[in-house]
Structure formats: C-alpha cells, structure tokens
Amino acid sequence: MTARRSFVIFAVVAALGAGAAVPASAQSALSLSRRGTSVGIAAALGNRDRPEADRAADANRKPAALLAFAGLRRGMNVADIMPGRGYFTRIFSNVVGADGHVWAVVPAERVAKKPDAADAVKAIAADASFGNVTVLVQPLDAISIPKPLDLAWTSQNYHDVYYGSGADAALALDKAVFAALRRGGIFMVVDHVANPGMTPDAVRTLHRIDPALIRRQVEAVGFHFEGESKVLANGQDTHSLPVFDPSIRGHTDQVVLKFRKP
C-alpha cells in the first residue's frame, strides 16, 4: 500500500471516529481497499487447487462473506484452529499469498485419540500449491505460533472444547489465542447455535452452544467484542436437533462472532 493511500484510509478511520464527514477522496480509497479484499477472496475461492467437494460446500458455508467480515487479506498471518480437513486452510492460504502464512493447529488431544487427525491438513501443507501452510500439533491451552497472528479462526469447534473438555478448557484456549495474537488481532468464532438455558448434557448431544457462553468466555480473557454477522443465521432451525441430523445438516443456524485483542 502506498504512503498516500495509507494516509487517506487513516483519514477515513479518524473522521468516522470523530463523527465527521468523510472526504470523497477518502471514501474512494476505502472503497478501493474493500474492493481489493473482495477480489482477493473471490480469486481464492475460484482457485483450481480447491477440491470439488469444497467448492460444492461454498453455497452453504458462505466463505466470501465470512472472510470479508473477518477482514482477511493478503500478507496476513493466520491460525486455523481445529481445521478438520482443511476447508478454510486452503482458502486462507490462497488469500494471504506468499507474503502471509497459515498455521493449521491440530489439537494434540485429538491426535492422541485419533492418530490420523492431522493427516488431511498435512497433505495440504505437502502440496506445493500451498507452500505457505504449516501444520502444528499442539495442546489447545499451549498454542505457540512463530509469529504474532493477525487472525485466529475456529469454525464449528468451540462447542466441542466447551462441552467435551469443560469450560475451563475453553477458557484456556481463549487465553492461548489472546497470547498468540498481535495487538489489534482478530479472533473469529463460528458455531452452531443452541437455545439458552439448556442443560450441559442436553446441549452436548446436539453439538451446539449458546452464543452468550462464547461471548462470556472470550471476553473474560480480555478480548473486545467487535460484532456479529448474521450471514449463517437460519430462522427455520429450532435448535432442537443434532447438527448431524439429515434434515438440518449443512443448514444449521450458526453464530459468527468477531473479537479483537486491544
């Protein structure tokens, strides 16, 4: 980014914070910056190195809107925490490019129970098309990344930590993420929604979580709540079925929460 463009975008932020009118030139620069981010994400989604199964899932998972909300862009250092088979890992890699890096963090606790749990993302990291991906097998309460992170991400996993290992384990994860992020870094949590007030035993079988629990846990370690996206909301989901039920699988009501390290 040129010094002139950086100055203009800074002027936008300053003016908005002060409630002042934003100059037309600054509005144009900010619009251009956002457009560039959107183009980068669109190009990443269209990359032919993505498996067909991932492309088919895009309609339901809505990665373009999610990553635009997160502010993902070229050059960022990103941690994909509990990456599964690497759906987001590939997209992150394509967006951040050679100037950025992606760490796929597979829980050591998971690998202890399922030795091949990291194999899918290890295969991604071994592919020359994704040379900016590194796989780390680490305990979730002791995540250690070589560089300060711009973005930490976990999708459809927080409930497993909270109800599988306990609230203290989820809090320990939040603390580890907080330590791994740079000041101003973003922590994104996406998960299946549960109704408030359900007993832990009832919610555990549904693989869901009350969004208020996530907020309470994450803010308790020092994060500031930045906002919520409704891009994955589904008002037809009653939150009464397990997320794997064929009638709702892939279409659950999901919360998208964005937090910032001050």
Rank of each mutant, 00 (worst) to 15 (best):
A118D: 12
A118I: 10
D119L: 15
D119F: 10
A120T: 06
V121K: 00
V121H: 00
K122I: 02
A123P: 00
A123S: 11
A123R: 11
I124Y: 03
I124L: 03
I124D: 02
I124F: 03
A125K: 08
A125W: 09
A126E: 14
A126F: 12
D127A: 07
A128H: 14
A128Q: 14
A128I: 09
G131K: 13
G131P: 09
G131T: 11
G131Q: 11
N132K: 07
V133M: 02
V133E: 01
T134V: 05
V135L: 03
V135Q: 00
L136R: 01
L136H: 02
V137A: 00
V137C: 01
V137M: 05
V137G: 00
Q138P: 05
P139G: 06
L140G: 04
L140S: 05
D141Y: 06
D141K: 11
D141N: 13
A142K: 14
A142F: 04
I143V: 13
I143Y: 08
I143N: 05
I143R: 06
P146V: 07
P146R: 09
K147I: 10
P148F: 13
P148W: 14
P148N: 14
P148H: 13
L149F: 10
D150I: 03
D150H: 10
A152S: 12
A152D: 09
A152G: 10
A152P: 06
A152T: 09
A152Q: 09
T154C: 09
T154N: 14
S155H: 14
Q156I: 14
Q156K: 14
Q156G: 04
Q156H: 12
N157F: 11
N157L: 06
N157H: 07
Y158S: 06
H159N: 07
V161Y: 01
V161P: 05
V161T: 12
V161M: 09
Y162V: 13
Y162T: 12
Y162H: 15
Y162Q: 13
Y162A: 15
Y163P: 07
Y163M: 08
G164C: 11
G164L: 13
S165Q: 15
S165R: 15
S165T: 12
G166S: 13
G166F: 10
G166Y: 13
A167P: 03
D168Y: 06
A170H: 07
A172L: 08
A172R: 13
A172M: 10
D174Y: 04
D174H: 07
K175E: 14
A176C: 11
A176I: 08
F178C: 02
F178E: 03
F178L: 11
F178M: 09
F178R: 10
F178N: 04
F178I: 08
F178H: 14
A179N: 11
A179S: 11
A180T: 08
A180D: 01
A180S: 12
L181G: 04
L181C: 08
R182W: 09
R183K: 15
G184E: 06
G185H: 02
G185M: 04
G185P: 00
G185A: 05
I186G: 02
F187E: 04
M188E: 01
M188N: 01
V189Y: 01
V190E: 06
V190Q: 06
V190L: 11
D191T: 05
D191C: 04
